[in-house]
């Protein structure tokens, strides 16, 4: 009995220490973002801010145009999410339930594309988008991400489990393909759509390489791009400003994640991917 107790207590201790190491930096970021720069730089550091200040946030909004970056990130993420919900469910439906020549080849292509990293495709994509006249525009930021192999795969896997009889019954009743898709298939997909929507929104919000390449002027930067360029563009680092910026990037995501984390875990369970 006592041996079990000791084992249990030490397990808790190790897990709590782990939790501290993982969550601690976020707490530290939040606390430090409310300190004046001089206090951030003081040695030894203060844990709790001795003077609370919003100066870092004021600077973000007055000097650095963060509202614009925030709006850009939100616009891009919403459009990309809507696009994925529509196109991935359409393509996933076709791959799971419709019979057409080349279906297998198309599915294998989708699977193969899961492995292709953004680093391989961004140069030609940039050339393409530039020649379409879309460089440094919202269209250029959004268009390449409207559908992705991951979303198609997720929707296909989910749709496979929906019984064919339902679709057949609708067909017998005389419903057209579009009507079947909108009225029968999509309502059944709600859980998968929720998972896909959240995952897509977050990956778009955090996306970095493509907006870094495509957005060339200040007014099209997304939050991560603005933060990274500010972090590497300065000779003297103002941690207060950087940390406040990081808070603005991280906190919306954390709220979404904590509120909807059940969908995340299910998304990972159904596809094995994040």
């Amino acid at each position: 009995m006592t041996k079990d107790r000791i084992a249990k207590i030490s397990l808790y201790a190790v897990l709590c220490a782990g939790l501290l190491v993982v969550v601690g930096p976020f707490v530290w970021m939040l606390l430090s973002s409310f300190k004046p720069e001089s206090e951030i730089r003081s040695v030894p550091p203060t844990w709790w801010p001795s003077t609370w200040t919003f100066a870092n946030y004021r600077d973000l909004f007055d000097r650095l145009d963060f509202p614009q970056y925030f709006a850009n990130s939100a616009i891009v993420a919403v459009l990309v999410t809507l696009g994925n919900l529509l196109f991935c469910s359409l393509l996933g439906y076709a791959l799971a339930k419709l019979d057409f020549p080349g279906r297998k080849a198309l599915f294998l292509t989708v699977l193969g594309m899961l492995m292709v990293p953004g680093m391989v495709t961004f140069v030609p994509q940039f050339v393409l988008v530039s020649n379409l006249g879309l460089a440094n525009s919202y269209a250029g930021l959004v268009l390449p991400f409207l559908a992705g192999p991951f979303g198609v795969f997720l929707m296909r896997q989910f749709l496979l489990a929906i019984p064919d009889d339902l679709i057949e019954a609708a067909r017998v009743d005389g419903a057209g393909e579009w009507r079947i898709f909108w009225r029968v298939v999509l309502p059944l997909c709600k859980p998968a759509l929720a998972t896909l929507g959240i995952l897509t929104f977050l990956s778009s919000w955090n996306n970095f390489l493509w907006p870094l390449v495509v957005a060339t002027t200040d007014d099209k930067y997304t939050l991560p791009v603005a933060l990274a360029l500010y972090a590497i563009g300065q000779n003297r680092i103002y941690y207060g400003l950087l940390l406040a910026g990081a808070v603005v990037v991280v906190v919306p995501v954390l709220i979404v994640f904590l509120a909807l984390q059940r969908h995340f875990m299910r998304g990972i369970a159904t596809t094995g991917l994040k």
Binding site: W205, N206, L227, A231, L243, A246, V249, V253, L254
Partner: peptide, 11 residues
């Protein structure tokens, strides 16, 4: 895992 790598790198 769900937070931006850029923000984490800053932290």
């Amino acid at each position: 895992v769900v937070t931006s790598i850029v923000a984490i790198a800053v932290i």
